[in-house]
Amino acid sequence: MVNEVRDVQPGEAQQLIDQGWRLIDVRTDAEWAQGRIAGAHHVPMDQVVEEIGAHTEHPLLVVCASGGRSYRVAQYLAAQGFEAANLDGGLHAWEDAGLPVER
Rank of each mutant, 00 (worst) to 15 (best):
N3V: 15
D7E: 07
G20Y: 12
E57H: 00
G35F: 06
V101D: 07
G67R: 07
Q75I: 15
V43W: 06
E95F: 02
E57G: 00
A33K: 05
P59I: 02
G89C: 05
I37M: 06
E12H: 05
E51M: 03
E31Y: 01
Q14Y: 07
G67I: 15
R27P: 01
I17M: 09
A74G: 11
E4W: 11
I37T: 15
P44T: 13
Q19K: 15
E12S: 08
G39V: 13
V49C: 02
D7F: 05
A54P: 01
R69G: 15
F82T: 07
M45D: 10
V73R: 09
V43M: 08
A38N: 11
G20R: 14
Q80A: 14
A40V: 13
V49D: 04
Q15I: 11
H92L: 08
G20K: 08
I24G: 04
A85G: 08
I17S: 06
A97H: 08
Q75F: 13
H58T: 03
L23G: 05
T56S: 03
S66K: 13
V101Y: 10
R22I: 13
G20A: 11
A78I: 12
H58K: 04
V62A: 08
Q34A: 09
E95T: 06
Q75C: 10
G89N: 04
R22Q: 10
A38D: 15
M45A: 15
A93C: 06
R69F: 10
A13S: 12
A40P: 09
L99H: 07
L91N: 07
H42F: 05
Q15L: 14
E51L: 00
E83L: 15
Q34F: 06
R27K: 00
G11A: 10
G11E: 11
V101K: 08
P10V: 01
Q19R: 15
R69V: 14
M1E: 09
